[in-house]
Amino acid sequence: MAVNFRSSAGEAPPAFELKAAGFTLPVIRLLNGDMEALAEQIGVKVEQAPDFFRHTPVVIDLGGFPEGGAVEFPLLVGLLRGYGMIPFGVRGGTKTQNAAAEAMELAILGDAYLRPGKAAPASEPAPETPRRGLPTFTLVTRPVRSGQEIYAAGGDLSVVASVSSGAEVAADGNIHIYGCLRGRALAGNRGNADARIFCQDLQAELVSVAGHYRISENIPADLRGVPVQVFLDQKVLRIEKI
């Protein structure tokens, strides 16, 4: 039987056709970068019609987003997924915003629907340059408490205290924690695979580098409670004692 199958494989009927089709999809038009307000307001909407949003692909429209403003895509995508939606693409963003979206593996959709006024690429590089030139650095000296989120956009994050269970720290670059990490830490938030997490005492709920993560259950006991670094090695997340 197997031989038959193989011999017929050469002249198999075409397995696919390439076609174009249009779909009507819900579009989430972001009006500002206040993720907390967004979380709250979307929560209300979803509660009203949970079935409508379940497993629904959605497009994020940045046409109404303040120009030059940074969109916290990791948070946004996590938020939408949390409500059962499947965010898959972005439209109407600036170059920087699109790059950030691509880092989260979101598709950049055509600008066909854009307002003409928005597509003024000449003005865009200006706000972009200083951000690239000066990597930001965020320093936190007080404990990061349960329920708090800290995101160091565009740079490294140092926490000279503990990160409690139920708290989340994220950075586009490296994360250094000089206390105990009991919560979640996400380095290389926009896809930087060279980012690392360093911490004095690992008791984390979750560690992640560029989207590759490990939860508490999968962290070996001998790596808990000791100083470690977390990094990506050939796309595999590794945790090593320092």
């Binding site: 007080r142 404990p143 990061v144 408490r145 349960s146 329920g147 708090q148 409690s164 139920g166 708290a167």
Partner: peptide, 13 residues
């Protein structure tokens, strides 16, 4: 303890 921790976060923000 966790709830207290959460409350401390709210106090500081």
């Amino acid at each position: 303890v966790r709830d207290s921790d959460r409350m401390l976060g709210i106090l500081s923000s």
